Amino acid sequence: MTAADLRAMLVAGRVTHAPGVYDPASAALAVRAGHRAVHLSGPAISATMLGAPDLGFAPATQIADRAAILIPALGGVPLLADADVGYDSPDHAVWTALAYQRAGISGLCLDDGEDAGRTAERIAVLAERVPGVALIARARGDGLDDTFERCRAYAAAGADAVLPVAVREADLGRLRAALPGVPMVACRSETETGGGRLTGAELAGLGVCLVLHPLAAVLAALRAASLAYRAIAEEGDAERVDRMPPAALATLTDRPSREICREINKIDT
Results as ranks from 00 to 15, higher is better:
178 A>D: 06
197 R>V: 13
209 C>R: 15
206 L>P: 01
205 G>H: 06
178 A>F: 04
174 R>K: 09
207 G>R: 02
180 P>E: 05
168 R>C: 14
173 G>A: 10
193 T>A: 15
198 L>W: 08
198 L>I: 06
185 V>E: 01
169 E>F: 03
173 G>V: 14
176 R>V: 13
183 P>R: 07
176 R>Q: 06
178 A>T: 14
189 S>Q: 05
181 G>C: 10
194 G>E: 02
173 G>D: 12
172 L>P: 04
189 S>M: 05
193 T>N: 14
202 E>C: 07
206 L>A: 13
168 R>H: 12
208 V>N: 02
192 E>N: 13
186 A>F: 09
206 L>F: 07
198 L>D: 01
197 R>H: 14
186 A>E: 06
179 L>D: 03
170 A>D: 12
181 G>D: 12
183 P>W: 03
191 T>D: 15
188 R>F: 03
190 E>S: 14
170 A>M: 03
170 A>Q: 01
187 C>W: 07
202 E>L: 11
191 T>F: 02
196 G>E: 04
170 A>R: 01
206 L>M: 10
203 L>T: 12
205 G>C: 03
180 P>L: 06
204 A>M: 01
180 P>F: 08
188 R>P: 11
200 G>R: 09
168 R>G: 14
201 A>H: 10
186 A>R: 08
177 A>H: 00
190 E>A: 11
174 R>L: 12
176 R>A: 15
205 G>P: 00
185 V>S: 11
170 A>W: 09
194 G>Y: 08
199 T>H: 07
202 E>T: 05
193 T>K: 15
174 R>C: 00
187 C>V: 15
203 L>K: 06
170 A>G: 05
177 A>L: 11
173 G>Q: 11
177 A>K: 00
183 P>V: 02
175 L>P: 02
181 G>L: 09
181 G>S: 09
201 A>N: 12
208 V>E: 07
179 L>G: 00
197 R>Y: 12
204 A>G: 10
206 L>V: 11
198 L>Q: 00
175 L>H: 06
188 R>M: 08
203 L>D: 10
175 L>A: 04
202 E>M: 08
182 V>D: 06
199 T>L: 03
186 A>K: 04
191 T>R: 14
187 C>T: 12
207 G>V: 02
189 S>W: 07
198 L>Y: 01
208 V>Y: 09
201 A>D: 14
172 L>F: 12
170 A>P: 01
204 A>F: 03
198 L>R: 12
195 G>R: 13
192 E>S: 14
180 P>D: 13
192 E>D: 15
178 A>G: 07
197 R>I: 13
196 G>Y: 05
201 A>S: 15
173 G>K: 02
178 A>M: 09
182 V>C: 05
202 E>I: 11
175 L>Q: 01
188 R>K: 08
175 L>D: 05
208 V>L: 09
184 M>H: 01
204 A>Q: 02
195 G>S: 15
180 P>W: 06
170 A>K: 04
183 P>H: 03
168 R>K: 07
176 R>M: 05
207 G>S: 13
190 E>R: 08
192 E>L: 13
169 E>T: 02
176 R>W: 12
172 L>V: 14
204 A>L: 06
190 E>M: 09
